[in-house]
């Protein structure tokens, strides 16, 4: 009865809570196994790419909530990532008020969540202008916010200023990154497939109708921004504790654009699209290293090609399991 699809997404009648918990525990075990397997058998360079994919997935999924689902074009995702990275790294590296606590897995986990919460708060601040602005104007304002956040960190000497912050405990790994990626996916998926999620989608579709059907448009724009920023902050925290070093330049405008590309390539509003977009955008430049200096030219060319062939992104607004070729695998055609 508990096939994987219903374990993850629930089914018509719903999975009882114990089954959900069991499913989650199973997933954690599976992830631990995979983690051990990868850490012992895969070379460090490839491991690094795999983990970066996971961080990219969290970033792509979270930006997708604002850009793809709520239809608000945000260009400042790196800023939220920076807040999460700096706040969590400050807790574990500079502050260390509880000594050993912030060195433990639990402590780092707490710091990462704290970074996410701080980023969520900054998402609230950025979300406010989105109530008045749309389209290009909103993109410019969020871009500005992202840069302001970066420049603020550039000028705080307590976190190293332009020199960056070294010596961050290396507590993040495949397991934690992918656990968070799965949690992000599950939370955003379930949110979107709920009453509040439909309200968010309706804003993208038609703001005027949406408010005329009783949706508090301003409220849900901010909700989308805050949740999105929270997960970007978590991604930042995981990133900081994987690299062991962060500097303001890591979170520049290019990083924001990279995340936007993930979402656009995968298909705005498609969660599985964001995942695949994140993997492509993270892996392709590595796979293309063979072409040396032409690498980024070819990468850009490929992106242009995808946009020409699939202007709505690879999956458009749909999920991979809704794509016709995939659905055909599951469903037998009606007689």
């Amino acid at each position: 009865m508990a096939d994987t699809h219903s374990l993850f997404f629930g089914d018509q009648d719903g999975l009882k809570t114990p089954w959900q918990i069991l499913g989650f525990a199973l997933l954690v075990l599976l992830l631990m196994g995979a983690s051990a397997l990868i850490e012992n058998n895969v070379n460090p360079y490839v491991q690094r790419i795999i983990v970066n994919c996971g961080i990219g997935i969290i970033l792509g999924l979270s930006l997708n909530l604002v850009n793809g689902c709520a239809g608000q074009f945000s260009l400042g995702h790196a800023g939220f990532m920076a807040v999460g990275a700096y706040v969590s790294a400050y807790l574990t590296t500079v502050l260390m008020p509880f000594g050993a606590f912030f060195q433990s897995d639990l402590g780092v986990g707490t710091a990462v969540v704290a970074g996410g919460l701080a980023a969520g708060l900054s998402g609230y601040v950025v979300g406010l202008p989105s109530l008045r602005l749309r389209g290009d104007y909103l993109a410019i304002v969020t871009l500005g916010f992202g840069e302001i956040i970066r420049i603020v960190f550039l000028n705080i000497s307590a976190v190293g200023g332009p020199r960056g912050l070294p010596g961050i405990p290396l507590a993040s790994n495949f397991f934690w990154v992918y656990l968070w990626a799965i949690v992000t996916f599950a939370i955003i998926y379930r949110l979107i497939h709920s009453s509040a999620g439909r309200a968010i989608l309706s804003i993208r579709e038609d703001e005027i109708s949406s408010q005329s059907m009783g949706v508090d448009v301003s409220h849900y724009k901010v909700v989308a921004f805050v949740i999105s920023a929270f997960f970007a902050g978590v991604a930042g925290g995981l990133f900081a504790h994987y690299q062991g070093f962060i500097d303001p330049n890591t979170f520049n405008f290019n990083r924001s654009v990279e995340v936007v590309i993930m979402v656009v390539i995968g298909g705005m509003g498609s969660l599985s699209g964001a995942v695949i977009g994140a993997v492509l955008v993270t892996m392709l430049p590595e796979l293309l290293r063979f072409f040396a200096e032409y690498r980024m030219v070819i990468f850009s060319g490929l992106l242009v090609l995808v946009m020409l062939l699939r202007p709505m992104g690879i999956f458009g607004r749909h999920e991979i399991w809704e794509a016709s070729w995939f659905a055909n695998l599951k469903r037998k055609p009606k007689p």
Binding site: L191, S195, A196, R198, L201, M213, G214, V215
Partner: peptide, 26 residues
């Protein structure tokens, strides 16, 4: 879904129900 959006203003269930997929959600 076009019709379902209109029920949202009466808040049929909360975020916790949506995220944990409680009995109430279904």
């Amino acid at each position: 879904e076009n019709v379902l959006v209109s029920y949202h203003m009466r808040k049929p269930y909360g975020y916790v129900d949506a995220l944990l997929r409680t009995r109430q959600y279904y």
